[in-house]
Design a protein around this nucleic acid. Structure first.
Lengths: 139, 139
DNA sequence: ATAATAATGCAAATGAGTTGCTTGTGTCAA
DNA sequence: TTGACACAAGCAACTCATTTGCATTATTAT
């Protein structure tokens, strides 16, 4: 994995280690689920940091461009991000309570190979999200 | 198929047949790819209709609620819609030229059954989009 | 410590989507 | 055919995520 989301990795690459950057890296490396800009802001406030939203958007963009974060489209009204060195996985999104569960099975790879063979389309990435009702909410 | 996107179906259900509604239904029933509100507006203008964006948003919402259209999340900055009586399929989105191709294979059903069994999560729907480089752009 | 460069904060702008309100138009019954 | 009523359309103003310009501040190599 080339893109380990750690302070030392960023330092090695020669990127500046600012307060905001370090804290945002920490937040994503500890988070078990994708986070939106506003969720990141909340977490920063909780940890006593006051960071301007513009800075957060710019930092998310920076980490996305450098491949340390990936965009995840779960809520059409807000983009989420997650660390790109997580093992390949997909999300179960409960339409009742909004909780997000992770599944690590992925049988899409075979499909991608077929697509390449049959259509000449080279798949670089895919999004697969499941929406439904979680165990707790189905009673 | 209960939700055939046609004028006569809407008439049978007792919905009003307005100019905008009829034209939007026509646009979606002829379109081979998902369309955003602004793309619908463009097509309306091309066909000589001037329809307010509010009307378009309300009509998309109406047709979505009545299950004649489905939301498709391809571009995180804009929601797309497509006719819901299309055969189940997924999209190949070229990251170079933006063209959208359709694939009708879907091996996600098995996965959904597993999810239900293993996690107790009842999948209602899923989004699966592939992003990559199309044949024309890979030279 | 200092210069060079990148990051920050703030205010203002953008753009998708929504809402309140008034006016216009299909539909149906008489 | 007409009138009443409910639903739809248009307009302006609003919301909310995200972006941009610009002046200021912080980080880092020298």
């Amino acid at each position: 994995m080339n893109y380990t989301l750690t302070i030392s990795e960023l330092k090695d690459k020669g990127y500046r280690l600012t307060k905001a950057r370090k804290e945002i890296v920490k937040i994503f490396s500890e988070s078990k689920k994708p986070l939106t800009a506003s969720e990141v802001k909340k977490k920063l406030i909780q940890s006593g940091q006051s960071v301007n939203k513009t800075t957060i958007y710019r930092e998310l963009k920076f980490l996305d461009e450098k491949k340390y974060l990936k965009k995840v489209y779960i809520d059409p009204s807000e983009v989420s991000y997650e660390s790109s060195d997580l093992k390949h996985h997909h999300h179960l999104v409960c339409e009742e309570c909004g909780k997000i569960f992770v599944i690590t099975d992925c049988l899409v790879n075979d499909l991608e190979k077929n697509i390449r063979k049959k259509k000449g389309f080279i798949v670089r990435r895919h999004n697969l999200e499941f929406y439904g009702i979680c165990k707790d909410c189905s009673n």
